[in-house]
Write a protein that binds this DNA or RNA. Structure first.
Lengths: 189, 189
DNA sequence: CTCCAGATTCTAGCGTTGCTAGGTTATGGA
DNA sequence: TCCATAACCTAGCAACGCTAGAATCTGGAG
């Protein structure tokens, strides 16, 4: 086993460590607490090491976001497995909103921060494709004669709107379920 | 006319000038370009003057946001005047999405930045109440036996989701109208 | 007109941020 | 044993939000 392989492995481990530490720190204290100094301290290296792995802080946030899409895809897949039709749609919606509520910092990286993850291009990361695919799988069976992809976009928009406005305390905390019902009946029409 | 009245007037003028300059600068170059130094330079005063009007940069962004809700309320009112029912709903939706698309920086201050404008409390500014009132006026006539306020929250969430995901280039640029139609038919059911 | 108290405004600087140039240390092959 | 290379850190830059304290301006009293 050549040494450069071990080096590469160690480097990959440290890459992961940086991403995980950034996510942990953000989830513990919010993204404003994620400075390159504090992050470097957490991974027990100096600041420049971060820049040998990522082009800048934005790239680190972007990596956390892409990772988050992988997590989300897994949750959506788990939610819709074993159920079909309207029940699957409801399960996916609930899983999505739970994810946004329980991991607000991660959701922030994915959707709110200015990180500009490439969407709908050839460079779109697999994690994003997977998450979108879960949406498609849940929505297509109930689409009827409507375009599934457009319906996914609307479904996703409604959920995203609910998630962000809820996080910003701009919707009545109770009535959460009532809003979800309205979204689902609107979609199922 | 006592001099202290003139002083107060000048002070109010400068208050407005700061808010307007911050908005203009953000709309021209994005919020990341709005630094206290550049803003001070724009209003032709030194930095500390900003802090004699606002508690900090956040307060300035918040003032821009509240102002934005006033603008939005006016646009929504104009859109739904003269039409009724489903047509009014469509007009309001289009006006909202146009506003978000045409003034992304202002929309950002209102909804995306971390500014925490008080919602649904006794301290909620009139501009916010007005904007929400426009939504209520457009939605209530088509609510049927559904709770109008809940329906407004869902309608607003869907529009907000469409607006932010569109701004982040996460929806197909064409199909804009198709998505709007799906939202409206879902709501009108 | 002169002078002063108070309001107004600015200069200068603090601590922190993202990022990087250049020097130091560790490593593995010759 | 030595050295080229890779790995890593120290130190510092420019810009950020914010503020203490000095300087300047203003209007009314003597």
């Amino acid at each position: 086993m050549p040494i450069h392989e071990r080096r590469e492995r160690e480097r990959a481990d440290r890459h992961r460590l940086i991403i995980d530490s950034a996510r942990d720190l953000a989830e513990a204290e919010g993204w404003e607490a994620v400075t390159t100094r504090r992050l470097a301290e957490r991974v027990e290296y100096s600041q420049p090491v971060l820049y040998s792995h990522f082009k800048g802080k934005d790239a680190i946030v972007r990596a956390v976001a892409v990772d988050g899409f992988g997590v989300l895809a897994g949750l959506l897949r788990g939610a819709r497995s074993g159920v079909e039709g309207a029940a699957a749609l409801r399960a996916v919606a609930e899983a999505y909103l739970d994810f946004a509520a329980e991991r607000p910092a991660l959701y922030d990286a994915m959707f709110v921060q200015r990180v500009e993850v490439p969407f709908g291009t050839s460079e779109t990361p697999d994690e994003l494709r997977a998450a979108f695919g879960e949406f498609m799988a849940a929505v297509t069976p109930v689409a009827g004669q409507r375009d599934p992809e457009t319906l996914v976009e609307v479904f996703w928009s409604a959920l995203h709107g609910l998630a962000t406005l809820t996080a910003g305390h701009r919707l009545r905390p109770d009535h959460h379920r009532a809003r979800l019902e309205l979204v689902l009946t609107g979609l199922l029409n």
